[in-house]
Design a protein around this nucleic acid. Structure first.
Lengths: 347, 347
DNA sequence: TTCGGAATTTTAAACGTTTGCAATTGGTCT
DNA sequence: AGACCAATTGCAAACGTTTAAAATTCCGAA
């Protein structure tokens, strides 16, 4: 199974194992001529070092771990694919591989993470989708194990490495845009799950509102559990069918905004004439759903690539304090937003 | 970093390392009382075996490898995410982890695969997206390394383990449906890349055509390089704007079918009144693009889960000959197909 | 009490690397 | 020629586990 060993290669070259090892590592103590001779032979015979042996002595696995939660059978969002692709891209230039541990249905994500860390399978981990408080981070911090989080804790005083998208800015931007288009009555479709980004995005909206200081501006928030479609639809309809309907509704992320568009269509509303809708993430379907959802590009793939780099730095102890990084989402204007309808339209 | 070692645990229990090792492995030669005592202590002290050491002696890594090609920056299809999720799900119950090696822009996929195999990082690999002839499979077969392929070679005489979706049946089914709706002039938007599924799907269509034995049936095939949008649009327009336009166009996969719908809309054609369109894969956008794309569910995630199981069997030598498996795609009727327009419509 | 053999445990080698330290080589200077 | 030093190479231990084989313990029978 395993190909040529160092010992065999050394035998062919008539030098010691140690010399070959050092030569391949580029050790200056080995004569240049020898280094070249060894490199040449290694190439010619196709020598590939055994990672297990290397790991055993060095203590480093050459792996980054990623604990993948298994979602319901009918739902995979694009996040996973984008994120994994980005991590791979970011790691490959450092010669590090990605390793993915799946969480079995019954078990907790934390228990898998713990196993990954303690078996020495990974030199560091990336932790996606951080909740308001997160036992995974707590564990990693306690154990002082290298990690980078994608997302933030609610408690901003805890120091750790994270990267997050700056949704405060994005939702502020969205508000300003819509306000300038004449909108005064806003709706936000949110989730009731304990995720930090929910607060961030709502805060972005409210801060932008406050900056205007316009007493006529209103904001209604409707929430439902994240993967509960029935409750989501109900929440949205509560927003659409109220007496004083918002003229602009923001979805916490695209899936919600798309559902808003569907329900609006069902209610006979024309978008963007009667209602403006804005989402966040820019999933593929956003471009296809008529009339085209205005949204923000979350840049998941870029973020993951960046996270990979940050984690490598952490592992190699190149970074001093905790590294934090905000990614600014990019506005993607499509056709689902427009000027506020004249007051008469609101019947 | 690495927690408790076997030696330390043995020290606490006042027995030899070997006894602890055997006890944890459930070796019957160890007294039941000892086994229980050891298990209890291991749990209590949180002992987690070091995988590198274990791998070094056993020769098994506990990893399945997946070599991930990096695509252009703007394009990630849902395949990757679904596939990785499915693999993870399929592997987790066997206590095996997934490891992903990314192919750097400049390097060949084969060279990465070779490295994965020869470094002993994986006990088996899964090879996605098989081409008509595939150097990766050739290498793995030569080396007699466990693998399962997703997709087939054009040459059906080579024996190896594969799983593929039965697109011959699916495209035959699509033809029959459309024929029964009165369609006689067919178009197929294909790719010019050397992928086996291109032949399979076209063959499914032609075989179903042949079965009807209707001399009035025509089929025009238009192809373009897979990721070349400009060429794809041109090929599609060649099909749409010809004198005797097809009344039904099939896309080799959904992206192509969706582009057909876009171009048809641009040409002022109404779907499905003037033109029926059918795709394959059932990507998310298929449901959102008006009027809703009729397609086939490729069941990538299920396939990947199944592949994981097959590979485990191969690794553990439970399967006799090469295992092969055809997954039947499921028809997903939406609104993009309908009765053939009356002959007068074709101007 | 002693012995044979089964039951249980221990010893020690092996897996393929890396690396501190010792040993050897080669060259230069006196 | 001898001595010294630098350059180069080799020796051997270590990493944490598994496992074949040897050693020990235990038990019941003679």
């Amino acid at each position: 199974m395993a190909g040529l060993t160092l010992r065999e290669l050394a035998g062919k070259l008539d030098v010691s194992v140690a010399t070959v090892s050092r030569a391949l590592a580029g050790d200056q103590a080995i004569a240049l001529k020898t280094r070249e001779r060894v490199a040449e032979a290694a190439r010619r015979f196709g020598y590939v070092p055994n990672v297990a042996a290397r790991q055993l002595v060095s203590g480093r696995s050459g792996f980054i771990g990623f604990v993948m939660p298994v979602r319901g059978p009918n739902f995979i969002d694009s996040y996973l694919g984008e994120f994994v692709a980005g991590l791979g891209e970011g790691l490959v230039e450092h010669g590090i591989d990605l390793f993915i541990a799946t969480v079995q249905a019954g078990r907790s994500e934390l228990s898998v993470l713990r196993h990954v860390v303690e078996s020495g399978r990974a030199d560091g981990v990336v932790v996606p989708r951080i909740g308001e408080t997160d036992e995974r981070l707590q564990y990693l911090l306690e154990r002082n194990f290298p990690f980078v989080a994608h997302g933030r804790l609610l408690d901003a005083s805890v120091p750790y490495n994270w990267l997050d998208s700056d949704s405060v800015v994005a939702f502020g931007e969205a508000f300003d845009l819509l306000y300038d288009l004449g909108h005064r009555h806003f709706g936000l479709v949110s989730i009731s799950d304990a995720m930090t980004f929910r607060h961030m995005r709502e805060r972005g909206l409210r801060e932008a509102m406050a900056r205007r200081g316009d007493p006529n501006v209103t904001l209604e928030v409707a929430s439902a559990p994240r993967f509960d479609r029935g409750a989501t639809v109900a929440a949205i309809n509560g927003l659409i069918h109220r007496e004083h309907r918002p003229t602009a509704i923001l979805g916490l992320f695209d899936e919600l905004a798309l559902t808003v568009m569907e329900e609006a269509a069902r209610a006979g509303l024309s978008i963007p004439r009667d209602l403006s809708v804005v989402g966040f993430d820019n999933i593929t379907a956003a471009a296809y759903a008529p009339p085209g959802l205005t949204t923000f590009e979350a840049r998941t793939r870029d973020s993951a690539r960046e996270i990979a780099g940050m984690l490598v730095d952490v592992i190699e102890k190149r970074s001093a304090g905790p590294a934090t990084r905000l990614i600014r989402p990019q506005f993607v204007p499509r056709a689902s937003h427009g000027p506020a309808p004249p007051p008469t339209t609101k019947f």
